[in-house]
Design a protein around this nucleic acid. Sequence first.
DNA 1: CGGGGTCTTGATCTCAATCAACCAATGTGG
DNA 2: CCACATTGGTTGATTGAGATCAAGACCCCG
Lengths: 198, 198
Amino acid sequence: MSGKHDLRVANAIDAGEGWHAIARGKGIYEAGQAGGAWRVMLGVVRLDRIGEEGPEFGGLALAGDVIGAETLLLGSYTFAARALTPVMIEPWGAVAERASPEVLLQALTTTEDRAADTLALRNGSPDRRINRLLALMGRGLAHGRKLVRVALPQLRDIAEMTGLTVETVSRTISRLKETGELDVRGNSRERQVWVTVK
Amino acid sequence: MSGKHDLRVANAIDAGEGWHAIARGKGIYEAGQAGGAWRVMLGVVRLDRIGEEGPEFGGLALAGDVIGAETLLLGSYTFAARALTPVMIEPWGAVAERASPEVLLQALTTTEDRAADTLALRNGSPDRRINRLLALMGRGLAHGRKLVRVALPQLRDIAEMTGLTVETVSRTISRLKETGELDVRGNSRERQVWVTVK
DNA sequence: CGGGGTCTTGATCTCAATCAACCAATGTGG
DNA sequence: CCACATTGGTTGATTGAGATCAAGACCCCG
């Protein structure tokens, strides 16, 4: 089934039915590349735009969000996409009915909302920023309301999203871990955090 | 003509043909309010979302951008909108043809792009942030490429958008003015800056 | 007039950036 | 399989840029 799609997606592992799994830290597509739109089914995707001095953080996409919609208009991506956690995506927008006004309006609305969420990650103390990021990532996973295990992104990514340095992020997480505010598990390569979602 | 529209817009001055002029600093609509979508024809609009502790900055809209599109789906606004500079808006999306997939995709694409622009306002030194903000505001006005006169928002607004304090913004602008990097004109109530757009 | 809002400027302080090591885990090549 | 480089994370010491606190100027409006 998946063979029907033009798979320009790097690092993707075909999981049948057109789904693709991308490992934490791997790129999904690059800016300027030709390709189509995707819906994020699981995990968190980081979007980067080419700024004056190299790529700069330009947005986040959570489970349920659509990425690469600009290709339906332009044919190629304006952002680069990377998986911050293990990610699953499926093609989107290929089917004509999906490009209905209602669906597009829905995508537009969640995009605006997500943009505000992302902006809020750069407000307040390091504690607040990191807690908000984790809460946000948790929302993308929680189907019911409860306790969710969130894969911790690389410190470098957390730093760039929150507008802090890696050192500050490291120190903050260490402190939150000590005070019991955060329950971090796993070895340094693959860490997870328990987050309460409301 | 404009009487046909349901005018829930506060502080709006009917300018004929459904256009509305809003003065610098005035609110356009509030979150939760019923209403429709608008296209910004002139000026810069600040969008705010209700956060955990009061309203927080959630995005920017420049000339050409669509605001309040969520109402086409939800019926009411999720953001509040305020004019940072003198603004003109016209109703959008009421006409069925305007909700075509192409137009919605266009709106979606520019929204994502604008979100990245807004995010970038919180990167780098105060100088860089303020210069980027002014450049961004200039882009919304420049039809050809040239020198553009931009109305300076209130310091409080600049501060909240860039993630700085009013004092830092005041000092930074004063310094840029001294070094000749910025040409600020007008009295304190209504100041303008000359910005080069590329 | 008085009062509230915006802007400006000064003095001080604090917290995150910076600079610098170091460690652990992983990967690489002979 | 071992030496070595690389990458990601941690921790410490120091510093400085921007936050904070405070006061005054200015303007507009009632």
